[in-house]
Design a protein around this nucleic acid. Structure first.
Lengths: 162, 162
DNA sequence: TGTTTTGCGGATATTCTATATCCTTAATTC
DNA sequence: GAATTAAGGATATAGAATATCCGCAAAACA
């Protein structure tokens, strides 16, 4: 059970976009360079964010991405699901139906108990991610990252933001 | 992020083993037939349970598997991790280190904040699974499964248990 | 007007994992 | 000695993750 690396990329990119001044855009090229990622492939992750309406885009030189709403209105689950999909990690194939002792026409009243428990854990995972806002991440980073690096990074970003 | 189907198989098999009388064993063949699963491949899942010391095995005719300890001393996480592995679902590749603004020799004081949050969600998932005992599953099933099917299934099992 | 830059989607290639089967070996039962 | 079992290694297949490339349309700018 392993998340795609694109999830990591998308989260870091959103953190950067959250620091952009109102109305400015940052390109795939800049985001790829900043994080040392393959530009073409990172582009797919950003497209997922766009399809999920988490980011706005604009074309042409000085084009790129910006958050579609404020960082306090975007949570981790939004971003993770945009890239990874909304499917549950546990898939119930109803193997209880293969029980040779089943009477013909036997009908289950509820979803399989095994699946319900696994889905409960899945929900706990989602709840945790839902409770963390993108603005929380930015808050943590602004405290932990050394001020000189924090500042020079945003200077670097602003120089490239259209 | 999708769990292997072997996880589902292992959980259902353990539920059956939990119903075995003290000291008796059930073979891969019987477990595969009961659940309609490929015997050879199911065998790999059962081997994982064995390697994790969740089940005891014995060879020869009338051989097979039984729980290594009581169903109240085995939780869902034990079984899931035995099959799926203990690796976290989120892997941090430390892409922050690729930031071109980083001063040479810059040293991070903590693991990446993004990773810490993702790992927290991972722990919530694990905690939920850790809190559910195999005996809890058996309790739920014994209430939900229609008594005639419940009984005939265990007759079927006992006929094949060595 | 035309050139450059950008996001977007489709097509394709590569690598890795999950799924599945087969075979040999050693232990156990009868 | 014959049958049955778990264990583990080797191998094959399918599908997903990773990655690259191309053409298109929109936007900026000279």
């Amino acid at each position: 059970m392993i998340l795609k690396s694109q999830v990591e990329w998308a989260l870091h990119c959103c953190a950067i976009l959250a620091g952009l001044p109102e109305g400015r855009y940052l390109s795939t090229k800049a985001l790829a360079e900043l994080h040392g990622l393959p530009k073409e492939y990172l582009s797919k992750a950003l497209q997922s964010l766009s399809q999920a309406s988490l980011v706005d885009t604009t074309l042409g030189p000085s084009g790129g991405y910006r958050l579609a709403r404020s960082a306090s209105e975007i949570n981790f689950l939004d971003i993770v699901e945009a890239v990874e999909g909304k499917a549950r990690s546990f898939t119930c194939t109803n193997i209880r139906e293969n029980n040779p002792c089943r009477p013909a026409g036997y009908c289950d009243s509820k979803p399989c108990a095994v699946a319900r428990i696994m889905w409960e854990a899945d929900e706990a995972w989602r709840d945790t991610l839902r409770r963390v806002r993108l603005s929380d991440l930015v808050g943590i980073l602004s405290e932990e990252v050394r001020p000189d690096l924090w500042q020079s990074t945003f200077e670097w970003v602003l120089k490239r933001a259209g």
